[in-house]
Amino acid sequence: VMFSIDIYELIEQGAILAFDDVVETPEEKTWLDSFYPTLMENGRTAGKTWGIPFQRSTIVMYYNKDAFKAAGLDPDKPPETWEQLVTVGKKLTKADGSQWGVMIPSTGYPYWMFGALTMQNDQVLMNDAGNETYFDSPAVIEALQFWRDLGSKHKIMPSGTIEWGTLRQNFLEGKTAIMWHSTGNLTIVKKKAKFDFGVAMLPASKRRGTPTGGGNFYIFKKTSSSERKAAMRLIRFMTSPERSAEWSMKTGYMGVSQAAYDTSKLKEYVKGFPYAAVARDQLKYATAELATYQTGRVRKALDDAIQAALTGTKTPEAALKEAQALSERLLKQYR
C-alpha cells in the first residue's frame, strides 16, 4: 500500500503493473469496477487501472457541540458555507486565545487541504492526465486568499501555519472548536473526545468539495506469476465488503465500495453512529487528490506557495503564479 497520488511516478519508473493485465477471469474484471468511482480517479489513467483503493478518506469537518452551545449556536447546525464558517468562527473564538473558531492544518499535507478549498470554489488543481496544473487560476488564488483571511483578517484561526500532527490533540483539548481533518481520525476522536462532537461535510463557496486521500494497493513488476496471484488474493481479501467494513469501523476510513456499506455490521454501525457515513456521502462532491508526473516537485511547489501566503511572505497571487511557472516547466515534457 502506497499513497494513491504516487501513481504517475510509479508508472514513469516502470515499477507497477496495470491490474487490467493481471486479472484473468470475467469475475475479476467485474471486480475492478466494484469500487466507488471517485476513489478510482487516483487509481486510473490512460484507460487502465493501476491502483486499488484501500485506506481511503475525504476531509471532514469535526466540531465541538459543547462549544457551539456555550457560544449560543445551534449544535446541530454546523456551517454550510464559507460565509457561515466566518460568522460562526467569530462567535466561537475567545478573545484570550484559549479557543479558536477553526483550524485548518497547513503543514504535512497543505496541498490536500487546499484541494478542498479550490474544489469548493469550483476549480480542480490538475487535469486527469497528470500533465497540467491550474495553480494560477483566479478561483485558486481566491481560495488561498480566503484561507489566509481566516487568520489575518477574520481572526478566527491562528495566523501563519498550523501543524498537522498536533491538530487532533488541539481539538480534543478544546483549543479549537472546529477542525478540518481526515476521516481517518474519526474512531480516535470518538474514543477520546470528552465532549459532544459532530462531523459534517466541508462548507461550500460555489459548491461543496473535497479531495479524496489515502492509500492504494499496487502490484509491482518485479514479481513472479505466483507472487502476483498471491497479491491478488490478498488485495481481494482486504478490499472485500466484510474486511472493508471492519476497517472502516475500526479506523474511520471509508469503506471502499457500496457493498461494504451494505454489510449488516456496517449498516448497524452507521445506524448507531451516523457520522461514520459523512465521508462516504461527501464522495458525490469529491475530486481526485493532487497527482501529477513529477508529483513530489510539483506538490512541493504548491506547498511552498501555500505556506508563503499563509505566513505573509508573499501574496497568494504571487506565490501561486510562481508555483504554476515551476509546475509548467516540469510538466510540459509529458504533453
Rank of each mutant, 00 (worst) to 15 (best):
L172R: 06
I104Y: 12
M103S: 11
H154Q: 11
D21I: 07
I5K: 14
A276H: 04
K77S: 12
I219G: 05
P37F: 02
I59Y: 12
I7H: 11
K314S: 09
K314D: 07
R335P: 06
R56S: 08
I162Q: 02
E132N: 03
V199E: 12
V23R: 11
F171H: 14
S159G: 13
G272C: 01
P158F: 09
F237G: 03
K229E: 13
A15Y: 11
N170E: 06
D6N: 13
L85W: 01
L172N: 01
A18Y: 04
F68R: 00
T292V: 03
D303Q: 11
K300M: 13
G215H: 11
S224N: 08
T239Y: 11
M113S: 14
G174T: 05
L17Y: 08
P37T: 01
Y62M: 07
T161I: 15
G174F: 00
E322H: 04
S248W: 00
Q324V: 07
E227C: 00
E80H: 03
K191H: 05
W50H: 09
K190F: 00
Q258C: 00
K332Y: 00
K155S: 07
F220M: 08
K153W: 05
L331S: 11
G130V: 05
L202S: 09
K332R: 07
S4R: 15
W50G: 02
I141D: 05
V60Y: 09
K332F: 00
Y275V: 12
N127F: 06
A177T: 12
M61K: 05
M103N: 10
F217P: 10
E9K: 13
D149Q: 09
F220S: 03
L320G: 07
T49Q: 14
M201C: 02
G296Q: 09
E132L: 10
K77W: 01
L310M: 13
G296R: 12
L10M: 03
T161H: 02
V124W: 02
L92Q: 05
P53V: 00
D149G: 01
M61C: 15
R233Y: 04
K90H: 03
N42K: 15
M103G: 09
F114A: 09
R233Q: 15
D281W: 10
G151Y: 14
E83A: 12
